[in-house]
Lab assay of single mutants.
Amino acid sequence: ATNIVGKVKWYNSTKNFGFIEQDNGGKDVFVHKSAVDAAGLHSLEEGQDVIFDLEEKQGKAYAVNLRIK
């Protein structure tokens, strides 16, 4: 899925991951530091509006192509 809109539920910059809540009511999506770095960001803030693509690997969904809304 592409261009999914959501809000950062939480992001832990020490542990380098967090979760994004989808605006469409879907399951929360894992986001890793690598996606944050690829977006040219240092971190994510709770409540921040983002747009992302959804990829699945080994049955787990995660956010890629992250951008600030």
Rank of each mutant, 00 (worst) to 15 (best):
51 I>L: 12
66 L>W: 00
22 Q>H: 12
30 F>D: 01
64 V>I: 13
63 A>L: 03
41 L>P: 03
28 D>T: 06
7 K>N: 05
36 V>H: 02
69 K>W: 07
25 G>L: 13
63 A>H: 00
58 Q>E: 13
1 A>N: 14
4 I>A: 07
31 V>C: 04
55 E>N: 14
64 V>F: 10
21 E>Y: 10
56 E>K: 09
9 K>F: 02
15 K>Y: 14
6 G>A: 05
2 T>H: 13
33 K>H: 08
5 V>N: 15
39 A>I: 07
30 F>I: 04
6 G>S: 02
43 S>T: 08
11 Y>H: 01
50 V>S: 01
16 N>E: 09
33 K>R: 08
8 V>M: 04
16 N>V: 03
20 I>V: 08
17 F>G: 03
24 N>W: 12
2 T>F: 11
1 A>P: 08
59 G>R: 14
13 S>M: 09
57 K>S: 15
30 F>L: 05
39 A>F: 03
59 G>P: 03
2 T>Y: 10
4 I>N: 08
55 E>P: 02
5 V>M: 11
66 L>Q: 00
42 H>D: 12
59 G>D: 08
12 N>L: 13
68 I>W: 09
38 A>S: 12
35 A>E: 11
49 D>T: 10
53 D>Q: 08
16 N>K: 15
28 D>K: 05
28 D>P: 08
42 H>Y: 15
14 T>L: 15
24 N>K: 13
47 G>C: 03
3 N>Q: 13
42 H>V: 13
24 N>M: 09
38 A>M: 08
40 G>V: 05
33 K>A: 13
18 G>I: 01
18 G>N: 01
32 H>F: 06
6 G>K: 01
17 F>A: 02
27 K>F: 09
3 N>M: 10
50 V>P: 00
67 R>T: 07
44 L>S: 01
42 H>T: 13
1 A>Y: 06
42 H>S: 14
56 E>T: 15
44 L>W: 03
65 N>W: 03
46 E>D: 12
4 I>T: 06
19 F>N: 01
62 Y>D: 02
30 F>A: 03
10 W>R: 04
48 Q>I: 10
4 I>D: 02
